[in-house]
Nucleic acid binder design. Structure first.
Length: 256
DNA sequence: ATGCCAAACGCTGTTTGA
């Protein structure tokens, strides 16, 4: 079973590319981020025509997350994170899919830092950590997949210097990510590719794609019993180079 | 020190965000 996460950077603008990728790679479960579309603008019919059921948590203009399942209907079990009733951002949705609990996560970028956006990022990560711990306590097979907007280690960026003041690799961002991992989650990509560059994002700006100046911020975190079933993981890098591509590439894991 | 780019919105440019 293949589960993928894909920050589409606008599902309306990306729909032809998304459908093409679904048809060519046939993932069983897909976590989408950055729909940039309100709930009533989600392209339900096109996704259905491609063979996928879906649940989504949209928002006008930015954010927005969804979970797709091939030949199945995901059953939503939570949207949003607890402990901040004033949080209006659509960044978290969780569903039961084929015996798995799956969450699609769009973690706040946090730039510029320091500042209120960075504070929001760190608070959001603490709330995610609480949810992640609760899910582990349920002892059901779980995958937390999405755009974490965290470069976990120096080897996860083309340039430590270029990114040194960026919110994505501040020590606080990395510590918050490690706190979640250390609960007992397994980073699927790094387990299958222990060393060296694995990029999942290339900025549109400054020729990042042609000079392969990327970083690794899209992650699939596996609960222990899912980690035991991990067979492979990778990035569909080729899709980043196509016409009208997202700035992220689909990132996936195969579970036995 | 700044813009590089892209999408949405709504209108021929502005805002937002990464």
């Amino acid at each position: 079973m293949k589960i993928a996460t894909y920050n589409v950077n606008g599902i309306t603008a990306r729909l032809p590319r998304l459908v093409e990728w679904l048809e060519e790679t046939k993932p069983d479960i897909v976590c989408l981020q950055e729909l940039k579309a309100d709930d009533d603008k989600f392209p339900k019919a096109a996704i259905e025509a491609a063979g996928y059921g879906a649940v989504w948590h949209g928002q006008k203009g930015f954010n927005g997350v969804a979970i797709l399942a091939r030949d199945a209907e995901p059953v939503e079990r939570q949207r949003g994170l607890a402990d901040d009733p004033d949080d209006t951002h659509s960044r978290y949705i969780e569903a039961d899919v084929n015996g798995l609990v799956v969450a699609s996560i769009y973690l706040p970028n946090g730039n510029p830092q320091p500042g209120p956006k960075f504070d929001y990022k760190l608070k959001w990560m603490a709330r995610l950590a609480d949810r992640a711990a609760a899910l582990l306590a349920e002892e059901v097979p779980t995958i937390l997949a999405g755009d974490y907007n965290v470069i976990p280690k120096d080897e996860d960026t083309f340039s430590v210097r270029a990114m040194s003041t960026d919110a994505l690799m501040q020590p606080e961002s990395r510590a918050a990510f490690r706190t979640i991992l250390n609960q007992g989650w397994t980073d699927a990509i790094r387990t299958r590719h222990p060393r060296g560059p694995v990029w999942t994002f290339w900025d549109y700006q400054a020729g990042a794609w042609p000079r392969d100046a990327g970083f690794r911020i899209d992650h699939l975190l596996l609960s222990p019993t899912v980690a035991d079933r991990l067979v492979d993981a990778g990035v569909d890098k080729e899709y980043r180079g196509r016409e009208k591509a997202s700035d992220h590439a689909p990132t996936w894991a195969v579970i036995r």
